[in-house]
Design a protein around this nucleic acid. Structure first.
Lengths: 143, 143
DNA sequence: CGAAATCCATTAGCAAGCTAACAATCGTGC
DNA sequence: GCACGATTGTTAGCTTGCTAATGGATTTCG
């Protein structure tokens, strides 16, 4: 859309692409992406969870999660184990090769770079405003 | 990634999905999407422009634009005309069937709904902060 | 003028989101 | 106990973004 007062939506969409691109500069070579790193971290904090649980934590749909998990498994960073007590579910675990701390550090670096020259109180306001917009969006979805 | 102080990046990524979903609720039935509406509006303001020009205005790559333009052409909303003076370029035009005002109105509605309950000065701060973050990202890309 | 460089659009292929539809498994309830 | 419904994961297919590579047309430069 063309420029309104100030293209808020355009900026948000642009930042989404920039966040991914900035992060992936550092992890591309390892076969990782922003989404895969996010999944890796959530598995780490929820060892043994099912795919449905992970998808809920990540707020994505299960088919989207499946492909990312396939990729992590192919990279040897995560594994599916069948559950004896429920033939439908898989329990998902990190392998020993997975290390999530560097990924969190990369993400923090990108966030710091993007926040350069912005007053902390303005950043806090922005966090609050965007969280409220997300709530509003969530509420709309229910309708 | 898990929750840091406050997951700013997560919120931005989420809002991108919410913006698209909210907008597409209203235009899906006409074969439109947020990206296609954006392209339609830019064509309207740049009648006869080449695909490379449109891509630059939209800040997307030409292959991405090509597919969206193909879709608009299939819907009968835009057309490519060969240029006599340059055999490489196409001049892109809206057809008579294209109407962009309702699309701008839809976008404004979504923005208003998302902004509900947010103080105007906080919204202004957010716009400024996000614009700065986009600048920072842009600067990083050049490096 | 002709060769080299550049530009334009396209093709091909990857990743991340989504929805719809399905098979298999589990749980409930009659 | 068995049929029905709900849950789990998967497959298939769509859109939007990207990069890399290609063919054709133009521009530039020697």
């Amino acid at each position: 859309m063309p420029q309104s007062p100030a293209p808020l939506f355009e900026t948000i969409l642009y930042l989404t692409r920039a966040i991914r691109a900035g992060f992936e500069l550092r992890v591309r070579a390892q076969g990782l992406t922003y989404a895969r790193a996010r999944l890796l971290a959530v598995i780490g904090h929820n060892q043994g969870a099912s795919q449905a649980e992970l998808a809920q934590r990540l707020d994505i749909e299960t088919p989207t999660l499946k492909r990312q998990l396939d990729a992590l498994e192919a990279l040897g960073l995560a594994e599916r184990r069948p559950l004896a007590e429920d033939g439908r579910k898989h329990a998902i675990f990190l392998t020993g090769a997975a290390r999530i701390e560097p990924l969190l550090a990369f993400r923090a670096e990108v966030e710091a770079a993007f926040s350069d020259g912005i007053a902390p109180e303005d950043l806090a306001t922005t966090r609050r405003v965007l969280a409220r917009m997300a709530e509003n969006a969530e509420r709309l979805k229910r309708t």
